[in-house]
Design a protein around this nucleic acid. Structure first.
Length: 205
DNA sequence: TTCAGGATGTACT
DNA sequence: GTACATCCTGAAC
């Protein structure tokens, strides 16, 4: 199995944010892999980005994970109710990360649906299907990720990324054959961040 | 389909 | 005390 190694994450944050699109996130839950295709990301760059929790290298208990080695999971609580999953990027000491904003289920979707709604995929209604994993809080719920997983090493066996489903011994998904068409736009929910609110650091397929 | 409003608790000032 | 990298519900159209 060829999971992405630390060198993949130890580069420019925006390059990583784009490179993650179309790749597959694997979350091991009770020894079973939950597999999703990543379809939307955002970059956060602490050294000059007011929207980043560690803007200006601000070091607090919460932001400590952003200073960990690249390829570390940064998971924090937002609005008192929801968790957000990020991947730490750039050389260690640069507090940067990529927020995972949307996924599409590819394997063991029924387990993900149970995490999210308590029912298998077949029992999801149209509204639930449309809003399955299309938001950072939603996808954490579906993959059973909380602050308990903050600091996880993405080169380990519990949470990692692969380039192709074949790397997991799974057949390719018919919907994933087309060449990637990457779009860029403003990031979501950071109106407070001054000029940084206008950076086109959100990417999606 | 769109919109307003509320839930909820931690981090930081 | 204030803000927050969000989501869901219910009402109106």
């Amino acid at each position: 199995m060829s999971k992405l190694q630390r060198s993949f994450y130890a580069r420019d944050t925006l390059d990583v944010a784009r490179a993650l699109l179309g790749k597959y996130l694997v979350r091991m839950q009770d020894g079973v892999p939950l597999v999703c295709r990543m379809t939307e990301t955002e970059g956060y760059v602490g050294r000059m980005d007011k929207a980043c929790h560690a803007y200006g290298y601000k070091r607090t208990r919460r932001t400590e994970t952003l200073f960990a080695p690249p390829g570390t999971a940064y998971i924090y609580l937002i609005y008192g109710m929801y968790d957000c999953l990020n991947f730490v990027t750039e050389p260690e000491g640069e507090p940067c990360a990529v927020l995972i904003r949307a996924l599409e289920a590819r394997y063991n979707g029924d387990l993900i649906a149970r995490n999210r709604y308590g029912v298998p995929m077949a029992d999801m209604n149209a509204y639930q299907r449309r809003n399955f994993l299309n938001g950072p809080g939603k996808l954490c719920k579906g993959l059973a990720l909380t602050r308990a997983q903050n600091g996880l090493d993405l080169t380990g066996d519990e949470l990692f990324v692969v380039e192709r489903l074949e790397d997991l011994g799974l057949p390719p998904h018919p919907a994933d054959n087309e060449p990637l068409a990457i779009q860029a736009g403003k990031r979501i929910g950071i109106d407070y961040a001054g000029e940084a609110a206008d950076f086109l650091w959100r990417y999606w397929l």
